[in-house]
Design a binder for these strands. Structure first.
Lengths: 156, 156
DNA sequence: GGCGTCACGTCAATATAGTTGACATGAGAA
DNA sequence: TTCTCATGTCAACTATATTGACGTGACGCC
């Protein structure tokens, strides 16, 4: 539900009247997501990639030899939606796909060296933002942040 | 960078291997945003509305008599992008627009009773999620959450 | 009183990120 | 052999954005 201002590059928090005491929290969730992903998205954009590509790289990095079907399930998108970004990553040789020896009908995905590098750098941008924020509140504050987010995330 | 599972309705947190200690935080940010907006989005969808409509209603609720140009600036979108959702809200009579007595060239937007009701109910869904999460960690935990998110949000 | 600018409206083309449906292929299992 | 699984791909569509161009009515000013 929110905003931006003068500078073209980055939106900043709007100073809207608060009608409820939790309005600030709603706005922080919105701006927080943007704040965390802003640098990573800029980094990816310079390489002609975007969030969907990062999501694929992120998952494959953590599940080497994942099959395409599993990837679709984890990402929560259709195979048609996966197709384009996945093929781009294969063309760019950020990912490799090979069929497994036994289960010859599924393709197993892996990151190449270059793929690892990009995944790491993009995620590093996001982790740095989190680290800086956690450093300001110390370990107990960080733990509280995690606890709050877990409660919200599991609200399904 | 993430996920989903069996049920069609709501994604749930993926159990991916953590390569870095802050990976959990990255995933929580992703799922947290979804978790907070899930119920509100379902509520809005039942009424043929979506996030952009809610953003407009949210801002107008907090800036009665806002001009279209200011709304564009706050939302950070182009006037062409604003056009469709704004006109829908006007057609549905959730918003009114009138020209001001003096400044006859700008249009002033206001919520109708129905508009207020929808804005309030949608935002209530989000505030409830936040309230439940804050209740679990108490006031100091909530303050820590806010402090972390402010640092991240201002990362522009 | 005319000129320029401001605020708004709208048309067209494009991009991105997704959807559903249909259909094809090669591999394995029954 | 036939059925099903895992994958690939084509087409059409939706939603949400973008930029550029152009139009109109309302002021502001010399």
């Amino acid at each position: 539900m929110m905003p931006k201002t003068s500078h073209a590059a980055g939106l900043h928090r709007a100073s809207l009247e608060k009608l409820h005491d939790l309005d600030a929290a709603l706005e922080l969730m919105y701006y927080g997501w943007r704040g965390m992903t802003l640098l990573a998205d800029e980094y990816l954009a310079k390489r002609g990639l975007s969030r969907p590509h990062h999501r694929i790289l992120y998952v494959v990095a953590r599940r080497p030899d994942i099959a395409i079907g599993s990837l679709i399930e984890i990402l929560g998108i259709s195979k048609q939606a996966l197709n384009r970004p996945l093929n781009l990553l294969l063309e760019r040789k950020l990912l490799t796909s090979k069929r497994s020896p036994e289960q010859h009908r599924s393709k197993l995905l892996r990151l190449t060296q270059a793929g690892h590098r990009i995944e790491q750098r993009a995620s590093d941008h996001e982790r740095k933002v989190m680290r800086d924020a956690f450093d300001r509140v110390g370990a107990p504050g960080a733990a509280a942040w995690m606890a709050v987010m877990e409660t919200i995330a599991d609200n399904n």
